[in-house]
Amino acid sequence: MYNVLQRISSVTSFGLSALMAMMFAISIITINMSNNPDISVKLHDIKITKGRPDYFDKTSRNAEFARLTFDIDADLSSMFNWNTKQLFAYITVDYPTAKKKNNNVVIWDRIITKKQRSTLRMRKHHNKYLFRDIGLKLRDVEGAKLTFRVNSVPYFGIMQDQVLDSYDITMPQI
């Protein structure tokens, strides 16, 4: 604080500390802002086919692949606050098998970066990603659930993964 150089140094370093404190305060303030999104996912049907030629994955000839058809009606605009950078909305199928207790397979996702684009309306949409099990069989699965999750990504603070809605589905037995 004695000469100009020391004053520049101390003022700027205190300013950077204030910046850090402000970012921390922002992340605390916005951590649980109220949100009440409307979600409804309607499953039309599930088709299971066996085998799919893949040069690099020899197991895919014997694996079973499921193809889902579903409707999505979602209004996520209330999840945007002034500290939200983007929303990562995704649908998983959660199911237990004999080998593994807990399986979560992401079948669809979308990154929403603007509040104007946060209303989703989809009709007869298919899964975006392949849905197969690591144990090759999907027919015997019971107790599967279709879960709509949203991970809200803030500018500052922690990312929060929320389960917004969950539906019981039955895999076709054949």
């Binding site: 604080m1 004695y2 004053r7």
Partner: peptide, 19 residues
Amino acid sequence: LLEKGQIDLKGQQLAEKIY
């Protein structure tokens, strides 16, 4: 130039309070 602009002890206290 940067070593110029010296202020006294009370002034340093005041400057710290101000910023």
